[in-house]
Amino acid sequence: MAEIVLKNVTKSFGSLEVIKGANLRIESGEFMVFVGPSGCGKSTMLRLISGLESITSGELTFDGSLMNNVVPSKRGIAMVFQSYALYPHMKVFDNMAFGMKLAKAGADEVKNRVEEAARLLQIDHLLDRLPKQLSGGQRQRVAIGRAIVRDPRVFLFDEPLSNLDAALRVATRIEIAKLHRNMDDVTMIYVTHDQVEAMTLADRICVLRDGIVEQVGTPSELYDFPNSIFVAGFIGSPKMNFLSAGFAEPFGCATIGIRSEHIEIANSDAEWSGEVVHAEDLGSDTYMFVEIGSDEPLVVRCAGKHRVPWGERIGLKPLSGQLHRFDGAGRPVR
């Protein structure tokens, strides 16, 4: 239950400006995901909110009160780190209790809170172990448990799944989504470079690029109405196809973008035609790479197994209304 507002926030390391005037409102209880390529400043944004980095200029408020000069432990935040950052020499219980003990909480209260959090995460049988005796997934649960024990207003995640293997990543993602539903009054901010994590977890996504907020919106807003070529290309997998120059002219813009699932094979009224140069069969879908003379081959997604021999020429056309048009500056033409 904290509404977080960033007003013209900047951050410089020496002469290097990493965050260039961020304006953002995160609603109370919202699950906000910061996403962007590496070096875009998403982690720095999170660290500014956590207080681990100081803000160079601008204002950061939680529920209207200014947080710029408040130390991290007094902000009512909890953070889950990429490397878990468990205290290696402390047992799980002490790891989770450390913050409360430092805040001079009573022993009973500490015990109750830790055990409650452990039950919630199903790690209550691990409380006597040391971090090195746990698996990666268990460590991440302990790290989340330690954050829950802090009873935060704001829950911060810094790429918490990157160190887990693929299967565990999906499981933990679901776990985090569940956590968000259970703690629906806690604002959560989650940093990732993985747009699938962003799409599946977020209430709203904030796309960052070079220290600037590119677009903020719900996953479907970003998917359907990207505010720039950058966002269009970053959100969605496989990447949106972009065609420019001669291909875009008939549509009256500099560049057109079309997602792979919005192209269909057409025999008669084909917009484009080309040779199939590669195909990837994923079982449920098939991605066909069609060379139509543009910079990169067009990726076309077809449901089910689609046996098209390589080298065959096929015709393609966009689904109506699914074409994205962009001007020379990369902004959408609507």
Binding site: S54, N68, V70
Partner: peptide
């Protein structure tokens, strides 16, 4: 979880870096 923090005096404190 409620009534934490809202009434605290703000601003005049040292930030983390200065404290460190």
């Amino acid at each position: 979880m409620a009534n934490r923090n809202n009434s605290r005096p703000i601003g005049r404190e040292l930030d983390l870096e200065a404290q460190r």
